[in-house]
């Protein structure tokens, strides 16, 4: 079986600015990986290239075996994406929004799928409310339903719990854990919430200035840096420290 994502030398250059610098990684099927990095590290640019929204300056991406340069629509039908920074039409009801995406993804038995998602994500009571009138937590659940409408084999999540209260955030994380275990869907998660990444991700790519500066499981990374958690590792990398207690220095290579 092909991997969920195979990125080879993925590079994006805007004039003189190198946003992503020769990124290579392979996300296996059924795995949940984290994409971590400070603002401007290249996470969003990487996700945009994986989605075919942005053409790489160099390198190749294969998603579920499809070359994104030549066959991106076949891949797009089998994957999906959720981000709090991309809205769903506010005037449309939740059901109408889900119906739109069920059509766009050519989902068979769309109404049954919408009912199934509504039950799973506790949307039944808000199905006929306009998307613009929902709370942040409800919007997140609707965005997840949209992202799952086509039963994706690969899910790209950009800060899925941003602006949620701890209780709702925990509900979403538990739901994602359960869904991933049941469906075997591969997930690539970009987040600034280190606890979330520690909990959900088996492997983490640490990005800085468009490059992968370190990677491994959260516990491996913490052990390598002599730290207790991923947040401290993140700070070490962001502040150019190689290990706990070391002064600020060169970037970790």
């Amino acid at each position: 079986m092909t991997d969920a994502i195979q990125a080879e030398g993925l590079t994006k250059r805007y004039g003189e600015n190198l946003a992503v610098d020769a990124l290579s990684f392979t996300l296996p099927r059924g795995a949940t990986w984290g994409l971590l990095g400070g603002n401007g590290a290249g996470k969003s640019t990487t996700i945009a290239m994986l989605l075919g929204l942005l053409v790489p300056s160099a390198g190749t991406v294969r998603v579920l075996g499809h070359d994104m340069a030549r066959d991106r629509f076949a891949a797009l039908a089998r994957m999906n994406f959720s981000s709090p920074y991309v809205a769903l039409p506010h005037r449309l009801s939740v059901a109408e929004n889900l119906r739109v995406y069920a059509h766009l993804y050519d989902v068979p038995r769309a109404e049954a799928r919408i009912a199934e998602l509504a039950a799973a994500l506790q949307l039944e009571e808000i199905l006929h409310r306009p998307a613009g009138q929902l709370s942040a937590g409800q919007k997140t659940r609707v965005a997840l339903a949209k992202a799952l409408v086509n039963r994706p084999e690969l899910l790209l999540l950009d800060e899925p719990t941003a602006s949620l209260d701890p209780d709702t955030g925990d509900w979403v994380r538990s739901w994602l854990e359960r869904y991933q275990a049941e469906s075997g869907c591969a997930i690539l998660l970009a987040s600034h919430n280190m606890a979330e990444v520690e909990r959900l991700c088996g492997h983490v790519l640490m990005l800085k200035r468009g490059r992968i500066v370190d990677q491994g499981s959260p516990s491996e990374l913490a052990a390598r840096f002599g730290r207790d958690n991923l947040e401290e590792v993140f700070l070490d990398i962001a502040r150019n420290r190689k290990r706990a207690g070391e002064p600020m220095g060169e970037a970790v290579a």
């Binding site: 629509f73 797009l76 994406f81 981000s83 766009l104």
Partner: peptide, 14 residues
Amino acid sequence: WSRNLGHIFVSPLR
């Protein structure tokens, strides 16, 4: 205007 274009462009809509 509805900030929905991102979803449209990452769907399989040619």
